[in-house]
């Protein structure tokens, strides 16, 4: 498993496509609380965590027990950790849950990359 994090518009998916030779059909773009692990790459995990928050589900618990499914996955999550604490409780929880998920995934990932202006910083 590989985790790629970074701010909005930084080129995380472009980096993943180039580094891991992914085609468009290899990419699953998160929209709700379910993830299709049959695709090699799972993009926009921050949308998955937002959907989980809205559905009152635990995004980390979703991954527990699915280790086999995502053993070879390339997971991409937007870094939303650095702004002012959001006024909205939902966005506050979203921010926390996204951070918690990234920590969990990073611990279990073989490689963690942070993308800054299209360039990789290897964190693990």
């Amino acid at each position: 498993m590989v985790l790629i994090i970074g701010g909005a518009w930084q080129g995380k998916l472009d980096f993943a496509k180039e580094t891991y030779s992914l085609a468009e059909e290899d990419v699953f773009t998160c929209q709700g609380v379910e993830i299709d692990f049959s695709r090699r790459c799972v993009d926009r995990l921050e949308e998955f965590t937002l959907a989980c928050v809205q559905a009152e589900k635990d995004p980390v618990a979703y991954f527990v027990g699915r280790e086999e499914l995502c053993r070879n996955s390339i997971l991409i999550c937007g870094d939303i950790s650095c702004g002012v604490v959001p006024m909205s409780a939902e966005l506050r929880l979203w921010r926390n849950e996204t951070g918690r998920l990234c920590q969990y995934l990073a611990k279990n990932a073989a490689r963690v990359s942070r993308i800054f202006c299209g360039l990789e910083q290897r964190l693990k």
């Binding site: 970074g6 701010g7 909005a8 518009w9 930084q10 080129g11 870094d79 939303i80 950790s81 650095c82 702004g83 002012v84 959001p86 966005l91 506050r92 979203w94 921010r95 996204t98 202006c117 299209g118």
Partner: peptide, 24 residues
Amino acid sequence: IYCDAARYDEVTELYRKGLARVDR
């Protein structure tokens, strides 16, 4: 200006995307 948990209006997001394009 890319790492906060905010949902911006269209114009602000256009600016963020534009600056990221410049940066990259």
